[in-house]
Every structure is written in structure tokens, then in C-alpha cells.
Write a protein that binds this DNA or RNA. Structure first.
Lengths: 188, 188
DNA sequence: AAGATGTTGTTATGGCCGTAACAATATCCA
DNA sequence: TGGATATTGTTACGGCCATAACAACATCTT
């Protein structure tokens, strides 16, 4: 038996006592942080923290889950799939457009296209009218891959959101859409 | 004047006609994708797509904004800040605990700690009772940095969520928390 | 017509993150 | 007690992403 009385046994000693005992570690931490922020002087903003934390944590878990469970086993990545999905809907598209609608940098698109092209899922074609431009196109293999992965991803997303009722899902979508629409003007 | 009648002028030719004209490109794409999915056979699930897309897109924009606007100018990164913030609240902590509450891999913590240690914001200390273990501690410089960055990050987060009323923010937090609590059991 | 200006795509560099493999140490159990 | 097993932290590798710099090309302006 070791004698270390001040080591926190599992994380968060002074947690609010009414917590469910089976809370996953990230939520135990969030609850603990909220308490600590509420007790600070000058008072911090526990609500702002919790909202942002939950949003980022959920997105992180969802991304990781889709990536490891759906896409990696098929030799894809989530960003790669998302790019292919756009090509599937839009048809041949210039990298600059893909960057624009993804709010990503052009170099990120270049990298993603390189990876997909290496796997034979995508092709680059020159644009006759513009010597700089290129369009990215799905190959036949790419279209088959995106079709299958899309079905599985949708299935998994439904599992994630199954704990919400239809009205709650709609409300959440609406709240997210409002934030996205208003969006602090001076981004980056 | 060039003659390319079939080039989509700005993205999404056949968009629902009642869209606000000033929609940012990522939301124009989302609206277009929703229409396309609704018209597919077999019918896809436009609601699931939109909810997941909005969630991931908002998280991505928020992360990017906090990173470029708050943390990079101070020589930090968002993941680095988040780790320091945990240390600020929890005190000296083992990497394995940090990985657990962040739902990250241990190697990701190692990398983040390396970067922070290089910047003098964090230190590693051996644990006498366990020859394998290490605790990570904030330095004085690290604590000052996390204090300042935290204030700015909170300010910016409030701007992002200002378009929601207090009740809406609470509702959104509650919905996110429910999904996080229920959380598909077989993660990863 | 020609130079200034802007756009497109790429590369280089560096941080983040995961998986897999590993050495060092701790713990369990027969 | 001593060997099997588990845990901790690290490294190597590859993918993602951003910024900055750049070459090639287009467009604008005079």
C-alpha cells in the first residue's frame, strides 16, 4: 500500500456531489472546471466555457469516431471523404472553389487531392481556357468509394443523434445555423 | 468574353431560390447539398447531413478563429492552451490523466507537452513513487500566459454565441451534453 | 501594347493527431 | 519469490492543416 494522501484518486476531488457516477472522464472534467470557474474572482463565465467546451468536444469525438470506425478501415480519411463527397455532388471542381466552400486554405486542398490522387480516387485535369487552373474529378473507383462510405457515415451519424427527438434535432440544427449565419464578421 | 455556358458561375446553380443572397460559401454549399440529397433515390437523409455538417463546420470555424486570432499571436496554439488550462485548474498532472480527460492518445499529450516545454511554459517532473510516471506542471510564465489567453478566449467565445439568447444558449448546451452523455458506447 | 496587379496552384516548414512498436517499470499471481 | 501481464511514456511514421513564399498565368490600366 502506498501512502500518497494528496493524490487525486481518479480526477477531480472536489466535484459537485450530485454527479452521476458513470460520467465519462471528459464530462467529469467539464463539471469540475465549471465549478472552479464559478468560484473564481473575478467571476469567470462558466456558461460560455461549458457551451464552447461541449461543442468542441462533441465535434472532436464525432470526427474521431467517423474517422476510425468508417473511413480508415476503408483506406480513406474523413477530410478526404468530405472532399470526395463535394466532388460527387458538384462534379469536376477547381481547387480554389473547394477551398472556398470548405473555408480551408488552398494548400490544404492541394494536400488532400495529392493523397486522394495517390490512391486513384481522384484525378486532376487541366482547364483549356485557363493555364493556371485545374479541375479535380472523381474516378470510377472514387465514386464507388464515396457512395459506400456515405451510406455508412449517415448510419453512424444517426446513432449519434438518436438520443435527440426530431424536434430537438431540428432545434439544434437551427441554433447552429444561426451562429454560422451571423458568424463574427472579421474571421481570421 | 469567354464562352463557357455550363460553368457554374459561383457555386451551386440550382439552389433553392429563396436563399438569402449574402450567404457565405459553406452555407450555400450546405443548402445545395441538402437539396441534392432530398432528391436522391433511394432517399438520403438531408436532416442528418445538415445537423452533422453544421456541427462540424461550426467547430472548425470556431477552432480556426480562436487559434489564429487569440493564440497564435501569443505564440500558443489552441491545443496547447487547452492543455495548459487543464493544468491551471488541476495542478500537476500525469500525461495519462490528461489524455484520459481529453479523450486523446498519450502520444498526442507527449507531443503537446514537448512543444510547451520547448517554450518554457510547462515542465516535466519525475514521480518518486513510480519510476515510469511523470507529472506536467505549469511554469510561472505558463500560468501568466494561460490567464491572459483565457480572458481573451472567453471574450471571443461570447462574441460567437451572442446571437443566441440566454435560454437558447442553455438549450444548446443541454442538447450537446445529452449527446455527450449518451455517446455511442463502442467509441473507436 | 505593355507593365502593374491579381489569381491559381504548389512547395516548404511546422504544429496537431492517430496507430504501432518499444523500453522501463509496476503489479499480479501461481 | 519470480515470471507473466499490464501500464506509462516515448518515438517513428503518415495524414491533416495553416502560413509564407513562389512561379505561372490572367487581367487590368494606361
Amino acid at each position: 500500500m502506498n501512502s500518497e494522501p494528496d493524490t487525486r484518486p481518479d480526477l477531480g476531488v472536489d466535484l459537485p456531489p450530485d454527479l452521476p457516477p458513470d460520467l465519462p472522464p471528459d464530462l467529469r472534467y467539464a463539471a469540475y472546471a465549471r465549478e472552479r470557474l464559478a468560484g473564481m474572482s473575478p467571476a469567470a463565465d462558466p456558461e460560455a466555457f461549458t457551451l464552447a467546451y461541449h461543442l468542441l468536444q462533441l465535434a472532436y469525438l464525432l470526427v474521431t469516431d467517423l474517422e476510425t470506425r468508417i473511413h480508415r478501415p476503408r483506406g480513406l480519411t474523413l477530410p478526404g471523404f468530405r472532399l470526395m463527397f463535394k466532388l460527387w455532388l458538384l462534379g469536376p471542381t477547381q481547387p480554389v472553389r473547394l477551398a472556398e466552400i470548405s473555408a480551408m486554405s488552398r494548400s490544404a486542398v492541394t494536400n488532400a487531392v495529392n493523397t486522394l490522387e495517390r490512391g486513384g480516387l481522384v484525378e486532376r485535369r487541366p482547364v483549356p481556357e485557363d493555364g493556371r487552373a485545374v479541375v479535380v474529378t472523381l474516378t470510377a473507383a472514387g465514386e464507388a468509394a464515396v457512395r459506400e462510405a456515405f451510406a455508412e457515415q449517415t448510419r453512424r451519424e444517426r446513432e449519434w443523434f438518436a438520443c435527440l427527438g426530431p424536434a430537438e434535432r431540428e432545434q439544434m440544427t437551427a441554433l447552429l445555423a444561426r451562429i454560422l449565419r451571423v458568424r463574427p464578421a472579421d474571421l481570421s
